[in-house]
Amino acid sequence: MITRREFLKTSLAGAAGAAISLAAIEMVDPGKVLAAAVQPEKNARWAFLIDSTKCVGCGLCVKACKLENGLPFEANISPTWVERYILTNGGELFADSPKAGRDGYTSKRVDLGMGKYQVVDKSDTKKAFFVPKLCNHCENPPCVQVCPVGATYRTPDGVVLVDKSWCIGCGYCIMACPYGARFIDPRTRTAGKCTFCYHRITKGLKTACVQACPFGARQFGNLNDPNDPVAKTIMTQRVVVLKDEYGTKPQAYYLGLSKEVR
């Protein structure tokens, strides 16, 4: 029969042996590994600037994004979208973003959901405007924090990406994002989102949506470059970010945002 002393001795020896062999194993953070594998622009800190006063709601940015990123055109998800806000004389607020604003806002019909629509006449409109939106590539991204497997990560140049080969599709990141920027990519059945067109910006190109915007409502720049016009605007003009109260430190800055914007 084994005595207590022997038992303790053997257990201690076993634990020590296990500890030594386990020490050889490094805890891998896939986010870090993946972030190290990308080739970021040297010293870049990418940021997005949206001048919502310039947006006409044509939806070309949404089209360009879907085409560039190969997302099914008819799928009701989109890395970027355009919202329409209409405030009536009576103070009632209408807002919609049918098909993510892809087809442009050519009608006065506001989509109320559940198959209902409301026509808001021009004479009844106090103010109306469009707001383009996309992933804010937050400096403190809640989506990265909650990923149980570390499949989503922030690159050194400030872009939040998803490793679709490691994502388990739990949807926790979608729940954690206060902006509704994430979705399940129907192609991979993993989390999908705006990548700031990382494949383009690391080659010195602009994002597809910026490229497609005919009015300069969408601009893209490097905050670490003092000569970058976008960086200059963000530093010197009165810009705001969306839902500041969540402490996410968004990197998509807005000019001309109204208090009605959700």
């Binding site: 953070d29 896939p30 990923c147 149980p148 497997v149 490691w166 388990i168 599709g169 949807g171 993993t190």
Partner: peptide, 15 residues
């Protein structure tokens, strides 16, 4: 899970 066969990743790289 959308990728149930990857569920084991939670044990491989717990974040």
């Amino acid at each position: 899970l959308q990728q149930p066969e990857r569920g084991f990743n939670v044990f491989l790289t717990p974040h």
